[in-house]
Design a protein around this nucleic acid. Structure first.
Lengths: 144, 144
DNA sequence: TTTAAAGTCTATGGATTTAATAGATTAATT
DNA sequence: AATTAATCTATTAAATCCATAGACTTTAAA
């Protein structure tokens, strides 16, 4: 399951994708429109900024805005950033690999196989889910 | 990520699949062979028994054994039992559906789409991963 | 019929993670 | 200088995960 942090991040980014190239957006505005606790959102946006997905501007007229194009930001990277590994087992994770304490002999573990397949399918789908596609889909579904 | 509980359950079941139709196996034996804390394993096996995946026999010469055929037990049901939903969002879960507080308007949510696809692919793979297949694979990989 | 083996059940404790809040500080604009 | 808004540091509250302890029950064998 995605953490709330990750869900909030996705929602905030979709919101910012909608306002792409329209100048900085206040944290306050995002928080209100997407029903996210403001202080929590602060921390999230800061992390997205440090990851170069967002830029920010301080002071009056400041706020956050997308650094990358909406077509260049996908769910895979957002989720990795917020929640870490996408794989269901540490021993099949590409970015957060860890040896499984349980199955000591990785080479002969019959379980990993299925989880490698799940990982690959999942990454393909999430990697292809970009902010602009999500936005398009929302519009197609009739969101205002 | 799978919980330890779930990993332990899978390992224990694979072990019991190996001993299918060879009589009851002690908790103690499974715990030692698969490096699982015995007391924790007790609780797990009990749950698997209540779910009719295992049977048990009390008293001397007792122990646990598979109730279903190894080809009838798959990772999907084990994971659902131990960890709950397999989907990454509550609002796309088939067995543990819950409304997302975040995206209030489910009908116009552009995010769900990707997670429905992930869910379907994942369920197909995990549902097809049965104990006997895992066992076969381990033998093919040369586990003793 | 006693005894030992083994599963069953209830309860609890500690560690870690997640979610949220508070307050002080820094930077930019007007 | 005043105002606005992001940044940073700390702290707290709640939930979950992992593990252990101990008493109880059932069964089989001696």
């Amino acid at each position: 399951m995605l953490s709330k942090k990750c869900k909030y991040a996705i929602h905030a980014l979709v919101y910012l994708a909608e306002k792409y190239q329209q100048g900085p957006v206040h944290i306050q505005e995002i928080a209100e429109k997407r029903h996210i606790p403001k202080k929590f959102l602060e921390a999230i946006l800061l992390e997205l900024r440090n990851a170069k997905i967002l830029h920010s501007k301080k002071g009056k007229g400041g706020g956050y805005y997308l650094h990358q194009k909406p077509s260049d930001v996908n769910l895979m990277e957002i989720m990795r950033l917020m929640d870490g590994a996408i794989a269901m087992l540490p021993c099949v994770s590409l970015h957060y690999y860890e040896r499984c304490e349980e199955c000591r002999t990785e080479k002969t573990c019959g379980i990993r196989d299925a989880f490698i397949k799940v990982r690959d399918e999942t990454l393909a789908i999430l990697g292809g889910s970009t902010l602009d596609k999500i936005l398009k889909r929302e519009k197609a579904l009739g969101a205002k």
